[in-house]
Design a binder for these strands. Structure first.
Lengths: 220, 220
DNA sequence: TAGTGGTCTAGACCACCGC
DNA sequence: CGGTGGTCTAGACCACTAG
């Protein structure tokens, strides 16, 4: 979870861990099985174990990687960076994110299009102190959400979902009427107490639903 | 998960399960630990294990038991049954729910008030074939959501969240302007393939957010 | 103090993978 | 084929609970 072992890193084999930690194979195995259950590593009998690519999050809220989503449905995806700037964090925002005032952030506004239609509006903040590569990244080839997913580990996330009436600007960008109901999904991510990124994604309510499936045992 | 052992039922002790299933204690223990991890049972060292009261669901979507929620914040809660009737399931609805056409359902419309203000509108369907007690229940003391939570086990659930503009009726009941954005949370529940209940809960968007917290290891 | 769960060990057999 | 994970056993010691 510290990110020290990026996704794909080979996990030491059980016998090695037995020696390293001076405990029995059963004990090592139980720990590794636990990690596998929680989706942190992938174990393959006969082949070894490796650090999993984080599923990012569960069910309802996996809806952020537009490109992948579009590919799954066989539709075209494109994104358009509307604005990108480095800002000093306003005091009010800093308080909300648990950040020092005037911290330097990258602010990116992106419009996501699926099959040519505007599908969502993304307003993103990235903490330069924690993600220095963001200072120069232009997000022309890869939208910020996807870019961050692959490179930045996180330990805590918070989501909020709300409904708003589209204002003039939102309506124009999303090609809907002013006042139309929109779903807003906010996601804030931390790495061990340090703020990483905030995304605020606005979807036209009429065209979008967030869907999730569950079982009481938490397995889906 | 079948509901045969209601919440609070004592789980046989490890030695008994060893004998019943003819396997070692380690094996029994691993299984029980797994059930505990998934929240299906509670284990207490020295005291024994019992079937857990289902947390119903996770994080974002625990927001349905208004009474409990209000109690937590120390505010008054009340509900008002607007309509309650037994209906024959329309063909279109039957298809959506995987139900025989003309199945008998209880339909209940409820308004939830917190601190005197209308907080949410609930439209609920309950399958009489699976929950026969619903046929006569009036839901005057306990709103349908809470009532079902305690008595009916489930194996699968599906959620959807969308945003809509309030229509005239919704606006009047929720005391908001026509056209104001509302969050709609739909929840459908099955028990091993058999449809149990559907809830459609409408919240005024301006006053409500659904919030959840996560970690990559799925522990919150 | 007896009964319970929590954890560990050493050794074993098997299924599967990749060479 | 050797290396890997998946699973099981029998026995052990400990921490905690309830009477």
């Amino acid at each position: 979870m510290s990110g020290q072992w990026p996704p794909g890193t080979r996990v030491p084999v059980e016998h090695e861990l037995m020696a390293d930690y001076g405990c029995s194979r059963m004990t090592v195995s139980k720990v590794l099985s636990g990690l596998a259950d929680r989706g942190l590593i992938i174990r393959r009998r006969g082949a070894g174990s490796e650090v999993a690519t984080p599923r990012s999050e569960r069910a309802v809220l996996e809806i952020q990687d537009f490109a992948k989503e579009a590919a799954r449905h066989g539709t075209a995806y494109a994104h358009e960076v509307l604005r990108r700037e480095v800002i000093a964090c306003p005091v009010k925002t800093a308080a909300r994110l648990g950040l020092a005032a005037r911290s330097r952030l990258v602010s990116v506004h992106t419009l996501h299009r699926v099959a040519g239609r505007p599908e969502a509006l993304e307003e993103r903040l990235i903490n330069i102190a924690e993600v220095p590569q963001a200072r120069t990244e232009r997000f022309l080839d890869v939208p910020p959400g996807t870019w961050l997913l692959d490179y930045v580990p996180w330990t805590n996330a918070e989501h909020a979902i709300e409904a708003i009436n589209a204002d003039l600007l939102q309506a124009r960008l999303l090609d809907i009427a002013v006042g139309e109901a929109c779903l807003v999904l906010e996601r804030r991510t931390w790495q061990g107490g340090a703020f990483i990124t905030e995304a605020r994604i606005t979807y036209p309510g009429v065209r979008h639903r967030l869907v999730g499936r569950f079982s009481p045992d938490g397995r889906d």
